[in-house]
């Protein structure tokens, strides 16, 4: 197994730092899957043992690394899976601010390590300093790889563009102080509603004029839970109830400069939030619906 990658441009280095820092806020542990075309970051739900990932991030190496070499486990299993504490990587990358280059490699020290060699310019002389971080990692044996495959999800009933993440996060964070669960409604007419209900209040924030990327309607509503605005067709609306905290956590991804964020809903069952950047980084969050 071998891995060695070099980054020399400021833009990608900043993006990479932002991505890792976002992930570190979402989860303590993280798995990096190193494949020959992409680098993946995968987070599983910490509380529920082996479960499908809740976060899936793909980073195409060509856009980020000027050099990228890897040799996988063997000829049939060409990937490398490493587990590490996400804050360790996030903290090490703080040095990356105004660095000249980053070299990342898999090394064997007292334990397997992901070694970062960061070249930092000196403010007083022409010479540079080199900062080395050794991040202990656990190599995941092949028999466990299947736990970290991309989740297979049913075809979403609707995919709708999200409002700016910052705005969404402020609203969700206010709602979170009042209720633990938030209901998401999306309609084929481009409306997205966030709603909480408690004994003392009902708060709904409605966004309109959002682009609908796909709609697989009509939606069948077997219960009376759906409430609609007058003259709105029920079959054009789907909803899902999710944990407000999980939803809010994904929204901290607003520090990654993105050009597209989409929310896909499988009626009542699942919400998939997807963020894409100009460099084709794709970050997806899977939040399962709460059904009573």
């Amino acid at each position: 197994m071998k891995f060695r990658a070099v980054m020399i441009d400021a833009g990608p280095m900043r993006e990479f730092t932002n991505i890792v820092s976002t992930i570190s806020k979402l989860s303590k542990e993280c798995v990096a899957r190193i494949a020959d075309d992409q680098l993946y970051f995968i987070v599983s739900d910490e509380n529920s043992g082996p479960a499908p990932p809740i976060l899936w991030c793909e980073i195409p190496h060509a856009m980020f690394f000027s050099e990228y070499q890897m040799v996988g486990l063997d000829d049939d299993h060409k990937d490398i899976y490493l587990e590490f504490t996400s804050t360790n990587l996030a903290r090490s990358l703080i040095t990356l601010k105004n660095a000249k280059s980053l070299k990342m490699k898999l090394t064997k020290k007292q334990c397997p390590c992901l070694t970062l060699e960061i070249e930092v310019p000196s403010s007083t002389s022409q010479q540079t300093r080199q900062v080395t971080h050794d991040i202990p990692v656990k190599v995941i044996p092949r028999k466990l790889w299947s736990d970290f495959q991309e989740p297979k999800i049913p075809k979403p009933d609707i995919s709708i563009q999200l409002p700016t993440l910052k705005q969404l996060r402020t609203t969700i964070d206010r709602m979170r102080t009042m209720a633990a669960e938030v209901m998401l409604w999306a309609s084929a007419e481009g409306r997205l509603t966030l709603q909480i209900k408690t004994d003392t209040s009902k708060v709904s924030t409605r966004f309109k004029d959002l682009r609908v990327e796909a709609f697989e309607g009509p939606i069948e509503h077997s219960d009376s839970e759906t409430e609609t605005q007058a003259n709105e067709d029920k079959s054009n609306i789907c909803y899902c109830r999710v944990d407000a905290k999980k939803f809010s956590m994904f929204l901290s991804a607003d520090q990654i400069s993105h050009n597209r964020t989409v929310c896909s809903i499988v009626h009542k069952r699942l919400v998939v939030l997807c963020l894409q950047t100009e460099e084709n980084v794709k970050l997806q969050c899977f939040i399962t619906g709460i059904v009573y």
Binding site: P163, Q167, T171, D199, T200, S201, K202, V203, S204, T205, R206, F207, K208, D209, L210
Partner: peptide, 22 residues
């Protein structure tokens, strides 16, 4: 009846919030 609040931010136009507080 509940107290109803309707809020609309001044800088963004495609969003509004309505609250029913018992």
């Amino acid at each position: 009846s509940p107290l109803i609040l309707v809020l609309q931010p001044q800088s963004v136009h495609n969003v509004m919030t309505d609250c029913e507080i018992s």
